[in-house]
Simulated scan of single mutants.
Amino acid sequence: MPGRRMITMLSIVLLVVLMLASYKAFWIYQQLQLLHAPKPPVSVAVANAVEKPWQRQLPAAGTLKALQGINLSIEVPGVVTQLHFDSGQAVKAGQTLLQLEHQAEQAELDVALADRSLALQNFQRGHQLVGINAISQGEFDRLSAELNRNKALVAQRRWALAKKQIVAPFDGTIGIRQVNIGDYLQSSTVIASLQDTRSLYVDFHVPEQAVQLIKIGQPVQVEVSARPGLFSRASISAIDPIVDDNTRNVLVRATLATPDKYLLPGMFAHLQVLLDTPSSHVVIQESAIAYSPYGQYVYVVKPHTGNEGPGGLIAEQRLVETGERRDGDIVIAKGLAKGEQVVTAGQIKLQNGTPVHISIDRTQPDEPPLAPPPEHAE
């Protein structure tokens, strides 16, 4: 009896071990099946490589300045007696803008004019007398010097009187008036600004390595922060012949011959110097570029010769050489052909040969369908 009980127990234990071993073997079989099963396709967004005209540009920044612009100020102190302009008024060159109290200077000029008239009469009389030897040559020379001294004194008094008023040195638009009639002004007090905005210019700096790309007359696109997206056309008018020792940059001036009314002196400007004539280049979205220690690469969606994955598409990793970037696009100099589809989202899940499924990228504009991408020619 004990022997039969022992055999029964051993049979039960053996049956349990066999069941556990069978379950473990089935689990291992399932894992091997999953390991060798084809990977599901990765959902990615794609965009087409297009060929379009592309013009190289050199970015820069500067500040708009008027063709002529000054702050009007007086050189001598005095009380304002007359104002001949309003804020924002257009004025002409030579127009009187402000008059200070000048009665004392006018009286001094009148005295100088009287003295000059007397000296002139004495000189003319002496010229006649010296001709008949009625006076000496020395006396005539004294009369001549006296006339010259009085002429100089008249010029001095006129200059002092002219300092008592401000006239417009050039045509332009005057700014907001800073003084009123009756104000006592110290010397160098600013009255208002005067700006000639018939033409504007902007000074900017370029690296010394880029000077060879700049030439007189080259077109420049100007965009101000106050009006983003609106561009004005300027042209290079001057290039400084020296490189700054501290920044290693060169100062360049671009002139806007006929500026728009919304452009004002002092505005910050974004510039794009157009370096050459447009030429056709293969362009893709900048988001398609990925980086590795070996360089930049993209994933190109290609049809697979086998039947892996729905649709039979795989991602092919391809090294590319890139050029200039602008407005979310980038030029491909080598490694990609026109019409090929590149992955713009989902690259982080991809490897070379990964099956992919194309999904719609709602953040990108709709593109017309293309024919099957051509084989890439090295």
Rank of each mutant, 00 (worst) to 15 (best):
R4C: 11
M6H: 08
I7S: 13
I7R: 14
I7T: 07
I7G: 02
T8K: 15
S11T: 09
V13Q: 06
L14Q: 07
L15H: 12
S22C: 09
S22W: 06
K24T: 12
F26V: 14
I28Y: 01
Q31I: 02
L32E: 07
P38C: 09
V42L: 08
E51D: 06
K52F: 00
W54Y: 04
P59F: 00
A61V: 10
A61K: 03
A66S: 11
L67E: 12
G69Y: 05
G69N: 15
G78K: 04
V80R: 05
V80I: 11
L83R: 06
F85V: 12
D86K: 12
S87I: 01
Q89F: 04
V91C: 05
V91Y: 02
A93N: 11
L97S: 02
L98A: 04
H102M: 04
Q106A: 08
V111K: 03
L113W: 02
L113M: 14
R116M: 09
R116H: 12
F123K: 10
Q124G: 03
R125P: 13
Q128W: 09
L129N: 07
L129Y: 05
I132A: 15
N133R: 11
A134T: 03
Q137N: 07
G138N: 07
R142T: 12
R142G: 02
L143H: 03
N148Q: 14
N150C: 15
A152Y: 04
A162V: 12
A162L: 14
A162C: 05
K163D: 13
Q165R: 15
Q165M: 15
I166D: 08
P169Y: 15
G172T: 09
I174A: 07
V179A: 10
Q186K: 15
S188R: 13
T189E: 13
L194Q: 08
L200Y: 05
V206T: 02
P207W: 03
P207I: 08
A210M: 05
V211D: 01
V211T: 06
Q218S: 01
V220L: 07
Q221S: 13
V222N: 03
S225C: 01
A226L: 07
L230S: 09
L230H: 15
R233T: 10
S237P: 00
I239C: 07
I239L: 14
D244F: 11
D245W: 06
D245H: 02
R253Y: 12
A254G: 14
T255Y: 01
P259A: 06
K261P: 01
Y262T: 09
F268T: 10
A269K: 05
H270P: 01
H270M: 02
L271D: 03
L271I: 05
V273I: 08
D276I: 10
D276F: 10
T277F: 05
P278S: 06
P278E: 10
I284E: 08
Q285T: 12
A288W: 14
A288C: 13
S292N: 14
S292A: 10
Y294A: 08
Y294I: 00
Y297E: 07
V298K: 15
G306M: 06
P310W: 00
P310R: 00
E316W: 14
E316C: 04
L319G: 14
V331Y: 01
V331H: 02
A333F: 00
G335D: 11
G339T: 04
E340L: 01
V343W: 13
V343P: 12
G346V: 03
I348A: 13
K349T: 05
Q351G: 01
G353K: 00
H357F: 14
H357Y: 05
I358K: 02
S359I: 08
T363W: 01
Q364Y: 01
P365G: 02
L370M: 09
